[in-house]
Amino acid sequence: MIILITGASHTGKTVLAQKLLEKYKYPYLSIDHLKMGLIRSGNTELTPCDDKELTGYLWPIVSEIIKTAIENKQNLIVEGCYVPEDWRTWFGEEYLSEIKFICLVMTDEYIDEHFADIVKHGSDIEARLDDSDCTVRWIKEVNSEYIGRFQQDQIVIDKDYESAINSILNND
Rank of each mutant, 00 (worst) to 15 (best):
L20W: 06
Y24S: 13
D112F: 01
C49L: 13
E53A: 15
E126I: 14
D50S: 10
L46N: 10
L34C: 11
V105T: 14
D112T: 07
G7D: 00
P27Q: 12
Y95L: 04
E109H: 14
K67M: 00
C49M: 14
I31A: 09
P27E: 12
N72A: 11
S132Q: 07
G92E: 11
Y24C: 13
I61F: 07
P48G: 08
I111C: 05
S97K: 15
P84N: 07
M36I: 09
K73I: 03
G56H: 14
C81P: 13
T6W: 09
E71D: 15
Q18Y: 13
I70G: 03
H33T: 15
K67D: 04
E22C: 11
D50H: 09
T6N: 09
Q74N: 13
I65A: 03
T6Q: 09
I99C: 00
G92R: 07
V62W: 02
I31V: 15
P48L: 06
G80E: 00
D51M: 11
E94L: 12
Y57I: 03
A17D: 03
T68G: 09
V15R: 12
V105K: 08
V105E: 03
S63C: 04
Y110F: 15
M36F: 13
A17N: 06
Q74D: 12
E64M: 05
L104P: 06
K100N: 11
D112H: 05
E79Q: 08
E94C: 13
W90V: 05
W90K: 09
L104W: 06
Q74V: 12
T11A: 02
E98T: 06
G42C: 05
G37W: 02
N72D: 08
V83S: 10
T89A: 11
E22R: 15
A127G: 09
D117P: 02
E94F: 14
S41L: 11
K23S: 02
D32V: 05
I31C: 10
L76W: 12
I111S: 02
V62I: 12
W90D: 02
Y28S: 07
S132M: 08
Q74P: 09
N43V: 05
Q18D: 10
F115D: 01
Y24F: 14
L21I: 08
R88Q: 11
